[in-house]
Structure formats: structure tokens, C-alpha cells
Design a protein around this nucleic acid. Structure first.
Length: 471
RNA sequence: GGCGGGUUGGCGGAGAGGUUACGCAGCGGAUUGCAAAUCCGUGAAGACCGGUUCGAUUCCGGUACCCGCCUCCA
């Protein structure tokens, strides 16, 4: 069996991966807060951990891997959006508007991540479905002296957990020294964080021993991970920005609530994403969602490929040039693998992925397979990485709008063009070629018999009406 | 201020203490009605300064610059 090696943030070292139970490998990844469309930065961990999920399924068997990714559907931003809608005149109670907003966002999220070729996790729990477990866990933490209730708030006593700060390499004293922590008057210690907080007025809330309120963000993940994966599980993933405080707090809560378990054995963090060399932000005007890119005609597969071109632990930059390169590369792969039946993935691709998910090295190997004309191995290897799962019937550049009818039409024109060239009627051939170009179809001569000596490529912006007219 | 990460050829981007990364672009050639595509070949790197070593881009120290987190943004 292949040995997977992963860089564990806990030890800051690359370690051999040894699951607690090879018959049930368990992974938890922090999912989105569902208040709006997922932006490109959200897509990176999704694609990274999807690739890991696929690798684990390949190595341990698809039915022996459990992957949990939550939806945080309790949040101020969701409430704010619902309130905004109510003020704008939307019908329904605030609660209904909140529910509507989260349902809508989850549907968007699924559609967008599906487009990136990400498999659905085994479980996608919603925070609101596990409130009882969060309350129970919070009660337990109070009983064991790790938390305290004040004025409807429950706070975790950070000083009660000696290893606090270990994951992110911070000491509590250092943090307080340079801190800009706002100290609420009811806190015993500035570092203490909220497990439960009161809900005021219309805000969504649940009955609890401390009055109507809602859970703190960190306890959500701890409770859901415990409920679905147990006291100890294998991998916990997320973006590097979550390492502190979110993951640190998760560890503290879970370790104190379940002293016999040891929570996650391997912590994985993906680096952040930039756009054209700068942090993606609304103020810089370089903020965009996955849906924006899909709507521009960039296939989800191309977005996925770009994300995999950089190792997950390096910061990565999204550029239009990379998208162009990724598209051209994938087209080359598609041409070689069309009509081919996949065999086993290439051992060197597997080896690269097993080496701390070295996707750039895996892609380099994909290039080598293409060069060696190993279409079957290329297809299988690409699919292991979540690529080439769908194949256009012609070398269509228009992944998004591609359809059978226009592919057929493009092929027909290619044959016509090949026939004219065969008759050495170059004036007519050139004219057809120019007309085709205007319709958004690029005609190319080929040596192979594909399209009988010619290949038609549908561009992203092809014009169906003009194409039809070429018949 | 505290903590962490990074700096590789024109661009993107890996691994390895000594042997070709790879891709894109460039250049040369083959092929071609013209193109495109394809194929073959090819130049090009390791922020800076020291140290360890027979030998460092790879290890250690320092400097500069960049980035992230410390604020419920992945």
C-alpha cells in the first residue's frame, strides 16, 4: 500500500500518515458560513481537500473514508442579510428569511463546487441541527471547570488548558502582550472566548440553561466533529487563516470536553490565495466569486487545474494567464484521451500525490504521460485528481456552452473544409475557413484521421446563428 | 509590537548536498498550398552577505524585501 505523507501543522513536519482505523479513515474540514456566494478563496480548501479525499479513497477504498464538511448557518452576516431583505419588503418572518437565505446559499455552494469537480463530502452537517450537542458539550465544560457562565454568556477558560497555543505556536502571555483583544467586562481573562452568547430581540436563538442564545463559532465544529467522527479522528483541515484562533479553540474545547480522546491527529492548512499579486478584497476591486468565473466561460475544470498548479502550502496567485495556460494544457490532455478507456493511475502520479499532496509534481508527470502517448494512464491519473471526468466530443474550447448539436455542426464544417482542401480548391477552402472563424470556429488541419483530416475547435464566444448558416 | 511563512530561469512552478524538473513564452529545425496544430532540438535560475563542506540553489547564521495571522474572511 502507498504510504501517504502529510505536513502536520501540529509538529510542523512531514509525517507518515497512519490512520486510527484503516477501515474508516476520518477527515473534518471547516466549511463555509453560508451568507453569500463562495469566492475564489473559498474554493482553494475545497479543491485541496477534495484531492486528498480522492487520494484517501483510492488508497483505503471509497467506502472506508468519511469526510465531514460543515455549513455554518448561524452567523451575524446571515442575520444582517435577512434583516436587509425584510427592510426591503421581503415577505415572511425574520426566521423564515434567515432560513431562505441559508438554503439559497447552500444550493449555490453545491452548484459552484460541483462545477469544480469536488465530490460531495460524506456528511455536510448544519450547525443548527446540532445545537443540542453544543449545549451538552458546553455544560460538560462548565461542570469540569473549563468554562463559566456570566450574564447569559458562557466563556471558555483558556488558562485551564495548558497546551493552548501549541498548534499555532503562540503562548498566551505573548498574545496578551501584543494583543488588540477587546476585553469584555464579563471575561475573567482577556483570552477567554465565547462558547454561548445571548440572542437579543429578533435574533435567532435556542433555549439553553443560560437563557435564549446561540452557540459561539468554535464550539460548532467541535460538537459536529465529535458527533460524526468521534473523540479521536485522523485529519482536520482548513485555511491557514483559521489556524488561530478557530482551530486552537476547537482543540482546547475538544481536549477538555473529551479528555480520553485526542481530537485530530493530523492538522492540515492550506495557504491563502491572491489575485494578480494582491490579496483579494472588495476594496481593491479584485474580488470575485467562483460563479463569476464560470459565467465568464472559464470551465470549472480549468479553475480546478489552476488551483492544483500550486502546492497547497504555498500562497497562490490567480491570474488570467494561468487560466489560459491551464485551458490549453487540458485541451492537449483531452485530445489524447478522447475515446480512451482509463486503466490504473500512473504510479508516479500517485507517488507525487502521496508526498504531501504534491499536485504540481503530479501535473508534471501528467505532461510526461501525454508526451509518451499514454492516454489510458493519463486519463486514469487525471481522474484521480478530479480532472477529465467529462470529455467534450470535439476539441471544444467552449466547455461551458458546449453541446452535442454544435459539436456535430462543427465537425460537419471540418469535413467540408477537408474535402475542399483534398480537391485543392484552396480559394473556397480559405473562404470557408474565414467564415468559420467569424462564427467562432477555428479550423485546423490534422495528420490523423480525426474529423477526416481536419479539426474544428469551438471557441468560447462562438456564434450559434452564424454557425448554423455555414451548413 | 508578537507569531509564522516565503524570496528559484522572461513568466508560472517542483524536487534533490554533487547527475535534465516540468509547463508557458523565446530561438533553431522538420512538416505545411498558406496557416494552425504537431514533432525534434536549444539557450536561460536560485534575493544579498557570511559559514559548514571536496562540493550548496538545496544545511546553518545574518541582512533586505514580500506575505499571512494576532479583528467569527478559506
Amino acid at each position: 500500500m502507498v504510504t501517504i505523507r502529510l505536513t502536520n501543522s501540529k509538529s510542523r513536519k512531514k509525517e507518515d500518515f497512519a490512520p486510527i482505523d484503516p477501515a474508516n479513515v476520518r477527515m473534518y474540514v471547516c466549511g463555509p458560513t453560508v451568507y453569500d456566494r463562495a469566492h475564489l478563496g473559498n474554493a482553494r480548501p475545497v479543491v485541496v481537500f477534495d484531492t486528498l479525499f480522492r487520494l484517501l479513497r483510492h488508497v483505503y477504498g471509497a467506502e472506508h473514508v468519511t469526510y465531514v464538511r460543515n455549513f455554518t448557518d448561524v452567523d451575524d452576516k446571515i442575520n444582517a442579510e435577512a434583516l436587509r431583505r425584510q427592510k426591503a419588503g421581503s415577505p415572511g418572518t425574520l426566521e423564515e428569511l434567515i432560513h431562505g437565505r441559508t438554503e439559497e446559499t447552500i444550493a449555490w455552494y453545491h452548484a459552484d463546487m460541483d462545477a469544480l469537480g469536488a465530490l460531495r463530502p460524506t456528511f455536510e452537517p448544519r450547525a443548527t441541527e446540532f445545537i443540542a450537542q453544543m449545549i451538552a458539550m458546553t455544560e460538560g465544560l462548565i461542570a469540569s471547570g473549563h468554562a463559566y457562565a456570566v450574564d447569559g454568556h458562557v466563556l471558555f477558560r483558556v488558562r485551564s488548558y495548558k497546551d493552548y497555543g501549541k498548534l499555532s505556536g503562540r503562548s498566551v502571555d505573548d498574545m496578551i502582550a501584543g494583543a488588540r483583544v477587546e476585553v469584555a467586562p464579563f471575561k475573567e481573562d482577556p483570552m477567554d472566548f465565547v462558547l454561548w452568547k445571548p440572542s437579543s430581540g429578533q435574533e435567532p436563538g435556542w433555549a439553553s440553561p443560560w437563557g435564549k442564545g446561540r452557540p459561539g463559532w468554535h464550539i460548532e465544529c467541535s460538537a459536529m466533529a465529535h458527533e460524526l467522527l468521534g473523540e479521536s479522528f485522523d485529519i482536520h483541515g482548513g485555511g491557514l487563516d483559521l489556524q488561530f484562533p478557530h482551530h486552537e479553540n476547537e482543540i482546547a474545547q475538544s481536549a477538555c470536553a473529551h479528555p480520553h480522546g485526542d481530537f485530530a491527529h493530523y492538522w492540515l492548512h492550506n495557504e491563502m490565495l491572491q489575485v494578480e499579486g494582491k490579496k483579494m478584497s472588495k476594496s481593491l476591486g479584485n474580488f470575485f466569486t467562483v460563479r463569476d468565473l464560470l459565467d465568464q466561460g472559464i470551465p470549472g475544470e480549468v479553475i480546478r487545474f489552476v488551483l492544483l498548479m500550486t502546492h497547497y502550502r504555498s500562497p497562490m496567485d490567480w491570474t488570467a494567464e494561468k487560466a489560459r495556460q491551464a485551458r490549453d494544457t487540458l485541451l492537449g490532455f483531452i485530445e489524447l484521451t478522447r475515446g480512451v478507456e482509463p486503466v490504473d493511475p500512473d504510479p508516479l502520479v500517485l507517488e507525487a500525490l502521496a508526498d504531501d499532496l504534491n499536485t504540481p509534481a503530479a501535473i508534471a508527470r501528467l505532461h510526461a504521460l501525454r508526451k509518451a502517448n499514454q492516454g489510458a494512464a493519463l486519463l486514469a491519473s487525471a481522474r484521480l485528481m478530479g480532472l477529465l471526468s467529462f470529455q467534450p466530443t470535439v476539441s471544444s474550447l467552449a466547455w461551458g456552452q458546449h453541446d452535442e448539436k454544435h459539436d456535430q455542426l462543427a465537425n460537419e464544417i471540418a469535413r467540408k473544409w477537408a474535402a475542399l482542401r483534398g480537391n485543392r480548391d484552396f480559394a473556397a477552402a480559405d473562404e470557408l475557413k474565414n467564415l468559420a472563424a467569424e462564427a467562432g470556429v477555428e479550423l485546423q488541419a490534422t495528420k490523423q484521421a480525426v474529423g477526416q483530416g481536419a479539426l474544428a475547435k469551438l471557441k468560447e464566444n462562438f456564434d450559434p446563428v452564424k454557425l448554423e448558416a455555414l451548413r
